[in-house]
């Protein structure tokens, strides 16, 4: 009998094992839902498939009676717009300051303590300040997303920049490179794929800040909708919304990963060095 650590599943087993926890969760839900509905057909806590699919149809494919909008899509658009702008701004700030902090000793001396302190501020504690300063509109939500993840991206990228072998920086100088040319031709091209990694890692936090901001003050958005529906115990809407948010997050992560593979082939060539 070989040790457990040396036994590897074949492809079919691997696929089956991958599906297993999902199937278990689904079956557990169905059993529990069935049990509750058989006791009380009006139970709202664990709705059955029929009421969930009716809710999906109502939210996604029927115009809202009051506004005429298809709510799921308008919510998705406004949430993705906020998330996109916030993440883009944080990525730009993180990229610029991270590289400066990682490469240039004077920038590091100036910035590293400050970004270290900034990153310790719980972003949600800033939310009231943002609402006061920027109002309840789009800006405060976008700013929360950006402020929430930018310090992490800066610090991560600074560490990665510092980890570029010193030999490479010396070599560039012996080839006549100025500081600007080193940034442009040596550091930025090597840091862009790392920046994508940092963004992927911070997307979860970005969603958290977005939904928190939407829950508190908004008139559209995925987070706004699920917190609104909570008042009516409308689990048949909330559950598909949560699954939709999960799907969007997963898809964004996948898109970034695929983009990285296509755009930065050098990282995936050869012996992986």
């Amino acid at each position: 009998m070989r040790r457990l650590i040396n036994r590897r599943p074949d492809i079919a087993t691997r696929f089956g094992l991958m599906l297993l926890p999902f199937v278990i969760a689904l079956v557990a839900y169905m059993v529990a839902s069935e049990a509750r509905l058989s006791v009380n057909p009006n139970d709202k806590l664990l709705p059955g498939w029929s009421s969930i699919s009716a809710a999906i149809d109502r939210m996604a494919f029927q115009p809202d009676q009051r506004t005429g909008n298809y709510l799921l899509w308008t919510d998705t658009m406004s949430s993705l717009q906020r998330l996109g702008i916030g993440v883009a701004v944080a990525t730009l700030i993180g990229g610029i300051f991270g590289i400066l902090q990682g490469l240039i000793p004077h920038a590091r001396a100036t910035l590293s303590a400050f970004t270290g302190v900034l990153s310790m501020i719980p972003p949600l504690a800033l939310l009231p300040i943002l609402f006061i300063v920027f109002g309840l509109g789009e800006l405060s939500k976008v700013v929360l997303v950006a402020i929430g993840i930018a310090p992490f991206i800066i610090r991560d990228l600074a560490l990665r920049t510092e980890a570029i072998p010193h030999e490479e920086i010396i070599k560039a100088q012996t080839l006549g490179a100025s500081t600007w040319q080193i940034i442009l031709r040596v550091v930025v091209p090597q840091m862009l794929p790392r920046l994508i990694d940092a963004v992927r890692l911070s997307l979860g936090a970005a969603w958290l800040f977005l939904i928190a901001a939407e829950a508190i003050a908004s008139d559209s958005g995925l987070g706004y909708r699920i917190f609104l529906m909570r008042r009516y115990l409308a689990m048949d809407v909330i559950l598909p919304y949560v699954m939709w948010i999960t799907f969007l997050a997963f898809a964004l992560d996948l898109v970034l990963r695929l983009f990285q593979r296509v755009a930065f082939r050098w990282m995936y060539r050869g012996n992986g060095a």
Binding site: E168, I170, K171, T174, Q190, W266, M267
Partner: peptide, 21 residues
């Protein structure tokens, strides 16, 4: 007092840039 193009160098490792052909 800093590296310049009149002195070239080859190290044991990390002498070339991994992101360039």
């Amino acid at each position: 007092d800093e590296p310049s193009p009149d002195r070239g160098v080859v190290f044991q490792k990390y002498s070339v840039f991994p992101h360039l052909t």
